[in-house]
Simulated assay, not measured.
Amino acid sequence: MNRQVQVHGALFAVALIYGANYSIAKEIMPDYVLPFGLIVLRVVSAVLVFGGLSLFVVKEKIQSKNDWVRIILCGLFGITLNQLSFFSGLNLTSPINASLIQTVSPVVVVLLSSFLLKERIQVFRMVGILLAGLGAMMLISSKAGNAQGSILGDILMLVNAACFGAFLVLVKPLMQRYNPITVVSRVFLVGSVGVIPFGLGQVIKPDYASFPASIWGAIAFVIICMTILAYLLNVWAMKYASPSLVGVYIYLQPVFAILIAVSLGKDAFTFQKALYAAMIFGGVYLVSKPRKPAL
């Protein structure tokens, strides 16, 4: 299979998982597990899985102090601040509001890529980002207008989007030097140090024996799909894709969020929404379009 097809397939799967997560995680919080407790379940599970793979399968070590500094920053922005702001924000606001605010992240990616990685912002890529962002905002504007999301929740989701954008840029050089398992295992280990103190009390409080099967299924999805599978696919794709391309796939999350709502009978899919979705895919194409070689 063509490498570019594989990369887009991986990023597409990640967008689908995250799009579904907006609704699935809301089923868990706050009635069964509070936000920080759910984060601890995610992060500790990831540390165990990725740490085991790193120790017994990959067996690779970080080579320099500079790389460790970058890993610490990735753990801070990609796990600690990212997770604390995401789940606490999602607990307070609506899935539609949350998915809308996530479209800010690619803007952060482009700006930081230009500043830190010296990645030139080409005109057609900027047009693609604007087109995809406009399509996403128009797609969910009518829904967002009716959502009763908390202002604090929206602000936390904005912080989450900025932190995730910073993570995508910071982790790119590490992906080029190390195995993705090596990087992810260290990033989650560092990030766990920041989240466990916040969520330890919340993770031991629930009566897990009373949870229905549907909630256990939702928890399994959050841990296995959103945490382990999504991170693996994301970091693998980063080895072959620019941070801008990885970031712009966030625009697909509102599309999937609405499609899932339609499948559950909570929304209606119209020609107008199909047009907005086409704008998003067009923007993704422009961002991923390779640069023409100089003559």
Rank of each mutant, 00 (worst) to 15 (best):
P206R: 00
Y208Q: 10
P212Y: 14
R125V: 06
D31T: 15
I140R: 08
G9F: 14
F256G: 03
L53D: 11
S214M: 11
L53K: 12
S244H: 13
G199D: 03
F256L: 12
S210H: 12
V183M: 03
V246C: 06
N91F: 12
L41N: 07
Q102D: 02
Q6G: 02
V203T: 07
A98E: 06
N160V: 09
E119S: 04
A257Q: 04
A274G: 09
G128P: 05
M279V: 11
A10V: 14
G89P: 12
R3N: 11
V110W: 14
V255F: 10
L229M: 06
I121M: 14
V184K: 01
L92F: 12
V255C: 09
M29K: 03
I72K: 00
N21S: 14
F86R: 02
S242C: 05
A218F: 05
R177T: 05
A147T: 15
Q102N: 08
G19D: 15
S288Y: 10
K266P: 06
V5L: 07
Y251M: 12
Q63E: 15
F36T: 07
A209Q: 15
S214F: 05
I72G: 02
L189H: 03
S141H: 15
V127Q: 03
F269S: 05
L81F: 09
G199H: 00
P30T: 09
I228V: 13
G9H: 07
L112S: 10
A230V: 08
H8R: 08
I24M: 07
Y285K: 08
V123R: 15
S214Y: 12
L55P: 00
V57F: 14
F56K: 10
A274N: 02
G149M: 08
D267W: 12
V110Q: 09
C163L: 05
V44K: 00
S214I: 14
R70E: 04
G149I: 09
V104S: 01
D207P: 00
L189K: 07
G165Y: 13
L259Y: 02
L174E: 02
T93K: 05
C74K: 02
G153S: 12
G135E: 06
Q272I: 10
I39Y: 11
Y251G: 00
A278R: 04
Q102Y: 09
S99H: 08
A241Q: 13
L170S: 05
A257H: 03
K172M: 11
V203F: 01
L286H: 04
A161Q: 10
G145Q: 08
P106W: 03
I280N: 06
T227P: 00
G191W: 04
H8C: 04
I280M: 06
L229C: 02
L111F: 15
G217R: 05
